[in-house]
Write a protein that binds this DNA or RNA. Sequence first.
DNA 1: ATGAAAGCGCTAACAA
DNA 2: TTGTTAGCGCTTTCAT
Lengths: 324, 324
Amino acid sequence: MAGVSAATVSRAVNGSGPVSIETRAIIDRVINESGFRPNSIGRQLKTARTHTIGVLVPSLKNPIFADAVNGIECAAKNKGYNVLLASSGYSTERESSAVETFLNSRVEGLVLTVTDEAKSPALTILSSAGIPFVLMFNPVKNSSYSTISIDNRKAAFELVCNILELGHRRIAMIAGRFSESDRSVERQAGYQDALRHYGIDQVSITEVGFENQDISEQINALHEAKNSPTAYFCSTDVIAIATIRALTQLGKNVPTDVSVVGFDGISLGEWLTPSLTTAVQPAEQMGEWAMKHLIERIDDDETVKNLVLPYHLRHGESLVAPSI
Amino acid sequence: MAGVSAATVSRAVNGSGPVSIETRAIIDRVINESGFRPNSIGRQLKTARTHTIGVLVPSLKNPIFADAVNGIECAAKNKGYNVLLASSGYSTERESSAVETFLNSRVEGLVLTVTDEAKSPALTILSSAGIPFVLMFNPVKNSSYSTISIDNRKAAFELVCNILELGHRRIAMIAGRFSESDRSVERQAGYQDALRHYGIDQVSITEVGFENQDISEQINALHEAKNSPTAYFCSTDVIAIATIRALTQLGKNVPTDVSVVGFDGISLGEWLTPSLTTAVQPAEQMGEWAMKHLIERIDDDETVKNLVLPYHLRHGESLVAPSI
DNA sequence: ATGAAAGCGCTAACAA
DNA sequence: TTGTTAGCGCTTTCAT
């Protein structure tokens, strides 16, 4: 140190107390010359505030989560918070261990998407830890958690009704593994609602892994059976793309031979061939809201909120009337 | 505390010293009952190790960076490191401030993509800070920095040669702003190399902002001029998609009326209509290698390395011979 | 306007 | 095998 006590430097750096013009000048000079950097760790330990939040998503390879994280990160920066990032790969074990790590790092809150809100070890840990968190994409079940989501069941219902209205009667659902996504479960419920609404018995649901790029075997099996589907309802856009790829490999043309519908509304979906019919979630805004709300809960201890955002259907070329 | 000293708990938790079976049992029990969590901040302050690395990319909305971050995050998790994430929006100011924040947080290293390695305030700060970092995507210029990249200039050269071979002579480049991306500069050099190689004088370069979704005005201007381009070479896939969109809005068909070529090889590019002709960078592996190498530099103080990975060209439907 | 002192939670050296 | 002590870098009373 050059000539002055640590307490004074602290006051100068943070503007947290009176410092004379001259001393301030000296301190500034010494800081520049010496390359001194205040150690956040020391401050964090003393103040018991880290200004850090944890963000946990299943995977960044799905643009829906990348967009959401982008929104989160921007909001965090604006509010002066840092972001610790982890991904779970749709595994509850990895969710739990990420949450443990975050908690040990004393994040002040979390924004996360879990596989299943209803039975999530990670959320159990979090609840008993007593720090605020916001669920993103997960449907509202326990309203004592803050959530931001859309009505997945209703959106799926509307989407499948659209398929039915065009005359399709054999509609298969390709769903992300239910154990890995409560969104998938909800969307499946919407699918069944729609079939029931039209008095259709023939339900066909195939679960696929989220990390699994190649689902051609499953699609092949569906397609070989007699009374093969005339339309596929996929629980995500990424799965819809994989489905279209698999169908194409089997020599089927989408949508001429068979229709495919997705869910999520990733922006590139509009530019696919064929463009995807899908339900659009405003991912980036969801991330932003989640972060803003989380910070309100931290700073102004705002109450728990459940926000269900509107979605909209995007009508693309991947869905047409069945050929027969 | 229940009956034992802090030092003993520390030894029990970390296995860093002898603890009798019985005391360990007691400690475990108390930890579970009380919900005690070791405070990483305290440990970090004491040990002067944070096991945290900073990751800085221009934007997560470009899948090339999302994929890279995904690779980074996985590698980090495997090695027991945490990831602090920030994005710069292609702004050097935001790069600098993110780096400052990281440094204050005492990250042990960084993986980052900067706008321009040659004149980056962020890198100046980093160099004088004396902590290891790895540049990702940025071309090798100063070999005293660790880097992972591909040969952008050569890839662009090959790509544009492909366009020329098909008979195109009026090829416009749509480039991400040079001041915001040294990759863009390199790719532009490759574009010029190719034109020169074919003895073509007509160079046409239009700079566009990376965050700018709508480039239809610029495309419109190019297209209205007489001798309008028969092919567009775009410095990224995202820009190529925006270009295709703009051309479509102008009533032009790609590739019938005009060809478009991208750069990056984002995986969705294969499923676009038309599928993109592009140069593929292995983003996820680049992220993984960057993280692994960084940790080697931290843990085993490995020397600086420059890895130039092979790329490959992907031939899609967006490029065909000129119509005329 | 400044300094002295205490303490945030932890670990490492030393003692017992 | 366990406890005591000291100190990581910071902020915050409380004095001066």
